[in-house]
Simulated scan of single mutants.
Amino acid sequence: MFLFLLIAMVVVVAAVTLAVVGGGDRAVLPETAPEQLVDPLPATRPVGRADIDSLRLPVAARGYRMADVDDVLSRLGAELAERDARIAELESALAGAQATAVSPPGLLREPGEDTDR
């Protein structure tokens, strides 16, 4: 009985192996090229929330392809740095405009400067 179960197990393992690997002329699992990232991030405008939501990275054997993830992250990092710089520029311009609008005349003059102009 043991010998029969051992032979049956070997036959089942061999059949599954042939089915997965592909025995004969017709392969069950054909070779396919790895997925490549088609960059859906817009090149002509800043990246928006909808662009990130629609982004789908191709899956590799062990997770995501590192090069594709690195490319997307570097693009997003550059966009965020650009936005942060623009926000800082606008905040400083706003603070300067508010300071001149609130200050009384002569507050920003140099000491000793003539006020009768």
Rank of each mutant, 00 (worst) to 15 (best):
E89N: 02
G23C: 06
D51P: 07
M1E: 12
G63K: 02
F2Y: 08
T100N: 11
S92D: 09
D114P: 08
G112R: 00
D70E: 13
D39R: 04
L94V: 09
A15K: 07
Q36D: 07
L37Y: 00
I7Q: 03
L107C: 03
D25Q: 11
L108Q: 05
L6W: 01
S54D: 13
D39A: 01
A95H: 03
A15I: 07
P104A: 12
M1L: 12
T115L: 13
F2W: 05
V13M: 12
F4P: 02
G106Y: 06
L73N: 06
M9F: 06
Q98A: 13
A67S: 10
T17P: 01
G22D: 06
A19K: 14
A14V: 10
E31R: 15
R83T: 10
I87R: 08
P105F: 09
L107N: 06
A78D: 15
D68C: 03
P30T: 10
E110W: 11
P111M: 03
D84R: 15
A97L: 08
P58E: 09
R49M: 07
A99D: 13
E91P: 00
G63Y: 09
D39G: 00
E110H: 08
R26T: 15
G23F: 14
V38A: 07
A101D: 12
V59R: 15
L107Y: 15
A60T: 05
D51A: 03
A81F: 07
I7G: 00
L94I: 06
L37P: 00
V59S: 06
A61Y: 14
E35D: 12
R56S: 05
G106Q: 07
D84I: 09
L108C: 03
V28D: 02
P104K: 04
P111E: 11
L37M: 01
A33T: 08
A33N: 10
L37V: 01
A95D: 08
V21G: 00
M1R: 09
L29C: 10
G24M: 09
V28M: 11
R86S: 11
R49I: 12
A43W: 01
S54E: 11
A101Y: 12
L76A: 03
G96V: 03
A85N: 10
L94M: 06
I7F: 10
L29N: 13
V102P: 00
L57N: 05
T32H: 10
D25G: 12
R62Q: 11
S92N: 01
Q98F: 12
P30R: 11
V59E: 12
E91D: 07
D25W: 06
P46M: 02
G48C: 04
